[in-house]
Nucleic acid binder design. Structure first.
Length: 281
DNA sequence: CTAGGATCCTGTCAGC
DNA sequence: TGCTGACAGGATCCTA
């Protein structure tokens, strides 16, 4: 799914269209995609992000927690269209369609929540309870808030796990998903199967630095998921094209050493590495 | 407590 | 063509 940079791209992009705007009603097409009462008539006050979770605060004391998981998308259709999240044809398709799970009717347009695999959801919470929500509570710090020594401690605690599994776990460090985990490890020249306990402080520092750099670069380019203003300026996110060094680049040459990028399986996930740069220890 | 695998669901693609 | 299994930008639950 959408990882931290994509959710941040959605947060920033949607703000332009729905802040201070009123939700007139909600239509739920898939029961499992919506948790809580469906009667909503309130204005959007704020958009916040915790790790990969988006929080939409309303002016009636309620908040909506949106988690896109693997295939979620948020698509705004007003005068302009703004789409972000898991990239697909839906970004330009007529909506609603088969993958539309929820539609918000705003005074100035519609907001579609699409989700092919139905792993994502929107949950209604009391605004005061947002930070007590189990998923939010369990989140670790984001890379920018975490120190090298904190991450080193976490690696020690999970010393027998492959480092990729450690950095994918939101309870250890928040925001990374499959793309940015691969990119951060490539940056640090660390093999994803390396047992976390074998990493020295310098390597941990490079992983942290890599996580910050790849995610910052992605946010700056509108996420890897192609956020697109269909009727506006043509802006689109293109992190994968422009910046990704290994993700979905198997068979291509490593930009650092010219070695061949390969795809392997680590912690149950497709994983991209340069075997020459990221030596297994 | 940690570690690892199955599971939720729909769709696509490679291989026979 | 039609089938089958693997896999997918996530996280939880269950087991050992």
């Amino acid at each position: 799914m959408p990882e931290l940079p994509e959710v941040e791209t959605i947060r920033r992009g949607l703000s332009e269209f729905i802040l201070e705007k009123k939700i007139m009603g909600v239509e739920v097409f898939c029961e499992k995609s919506w948790i809580g009462p469906k009667e909503i008539s309130a204005k959007v006050k704020e958009l916040r992000r915790f790790g990969k979770a988006l929080i939409i605060d309303l002016d009636n004391g309620k908040s909506l927690m949106v988690h896109l998981r693997m295939t979620g998308q948020m698509i705004w259709q007003g005068e302009k269209r703004y789409a972000a999240g898991h990239p697909s044809e839906n970004f330009t398709a007529e909506l609603p369609n088969k993958q539309t799970r929820v539609v918000f009717e705003f005074e100035n347009g519609k907001l579609f929540f699409n989700d092919q695999r139905k792993f994502g959801f929107i949950k209604v919470l009391e605004t005061a309870e947002v930070e007590k929500e189990p998923f939010i509570m369990s989140l670790a710090k984001e890379p920018w808030q975490m120190s090298k020594s904190e991450l080193f401690e976490i690696m020690q605690r999970h010393k027998n796990s492959p480092v990729k599994a450690v950095i994918l776990d939101q309870k250890n460090i928040a925001g990374l998903g499959n793309i940015y985990a691969d990119e951060a490890l490539y940056y640090a020249k660390v093999h994803p199967e390396t047992r976390a306990g074998k990493l020295n402080e310098k390597e941990v520092g490079l992983i942290l630095e890599g996580a910050r750099k790849v995610m910052t670069a992605s946010i700056d380019s509108g996420g890897s998921t192609m956020a697109t203003y269909v009727k506006a300026d043509g802006t689109k996110g293109d992190y994968l094209e422009k910046f990704a060094q290994v993700f979905r680049r198997e068979g291509q040459k490593c930009g650092r050493c010219g070695g061949k990028i390969v795809k392997i399986r680590v912690a149950g996930r497709g994983t991209h590495i340069c075997p020459k740069c990221q030596e297994k220890k």
